[in-house]
């Protein structure tokens, strides 16, 4: 392929796949691809789907994607599963729930391993979103790994975040803890035909009532049975409502500005880190520092201050 970015912009599906591979593996041409695609991003709407393992995120995403397709939208899906910290391998199994979507030309699904990232996404998820955006899909779903309580990176990557919960996961004190329950723009109780769905809905409502400050968007708590296609149109309608709401009150612009800022800072941190490490290790200075620190002649805090001063002069 001559120029991957050009081909992505022309709508070449294989180029889209190859571009994501280049980015995930941090190949030499990755930065160039992103530079070329960036001006063409910002048009897709990004929906985050998060929740505990087994909540039905993939099944729900499959059904929601079909609903968006029936409303004439093209869809990209990024499905993330955990990478083993021991072997570096992963089983990416979200496609199992999305098999008939794979044959729809208006849908592009890509599975990604977390590859060491701990926030529920992978480090390259945001870039993969941009590549799909530049390719021209209307809506991008980002499905996180099954999360526990504190993997909340999705909120930085998505325009609207939906937290998927299921009945029977714990008492109401779970619902007032900090973490993923703070990030939902929308809550969906999946498997709502199981016992305890009403109780969970009540508990979530009580949690939201404790928010004190009146917000102009109170996260709706929806019910669905994804594998029976129940409640799906309501969820999609609610996505639209939330999008209209944050477009009207300027919140979408705030979120996207914040995202641009964070992305730039993250990139800068990474580059500076690489540069400093490179300088320290290649010059062999690090060994002397480590020796002195070990002998308690100096301490890591003083050394770091010294290194920063000499490098950033």
């Amino acid at each position: 392929m001559e120029n991957i970015a050009d081909e992505v912009l022309k709508g070449n599906r294989l180029a889209l796949a190859k571009a994501i591979t280049a980015i995930e593996n941090e190949r030499e041409n990755a930065t160039e691809i992103m530079q070329q695609l960036y001006p063409h991003t910002g048009n897709a709407y990004v929906l985050g789907i998060t929740g505990p393992p087994g909540a039905g995120k993939s099944t729900l995403t499959d059904k929601l994607a079909k609903e968006f397709r029936s409303r004439g939208k093209t869809v990209g899906i990024i499905a993330i599963d955990p990478t083993s910290p021991f072997s570096g391998g992963a089983i990416l199994g979200d496609r199992i729930r999305m098999n008939d979507l794979a044959m729809d030309e208006g849908v592009f699904i890509r599975s990604m391993g977390t590859r060491g990232s701990l926030g529920g996404l992978s480090h390259k998820t945001a870039d993969a979103v941009k590549v799909m955006d530049a390719f021209g899909v209307d809506v991008i779903f980002v499905e996180t790994v099954g999360v526990g309580q504190s993997e909340v990176d999705i909120v930085k990557a998505a325009d609207t975040t939906m937290v998927v919960l299921i009945p029977g996961m714990g008492d109401d004190i779970q619902a007032i803890k900090a973490g993923i329950l703070e990030i939902g723009d929308i809550f969906t109780i999946n498997k709502a035909d199981h016992d305890g769905a009403d109780k969970l809905q009540t508990e979530l409502n009580m949690m939201l009532d404790l928010d004190g400050v009146m917000k102009d968007w109170r996260p709706p708590i929806l019910k669905a049975v994804a594998n029976q296609n129940i409640g799906i149109t309501e969820v999609v309608d609610t996505f639209h409502k939330h999008r209209e709401h944050i477009e009207a009150n300027g919140q979408l612009t705030v979120r996207r500005t914040e995202r641009a800022k964070n992305e730039m800072l993250d990139l800068l941190d990474a580059k500076i880190g690489q540069y400093v490490r490179h300088k320290l290790v290649d010059s062999g200075k690090i060994d002397k520092f480590v020796e002195d620190i070990k002998a308690r002649k100096t301490d890591p805090y003083t050394v770091v201050n010294g290194v920063m001063e000499s490098m950033l002069k």
Binding site: T83, S84, S87, G88, G89, A90, I91, L92, G93, R95, I96, N99, S111, G113
Partner: peptide
């Protein structure tokens, strides 16, 4: 086994 060998396995069912 492929996972344990460090590969990313996309399992489609």
């Amino acid at each position: 086994a492929l996972r344990d060998a460090g590969f990313e396995v996309i399992y489609t069912g």
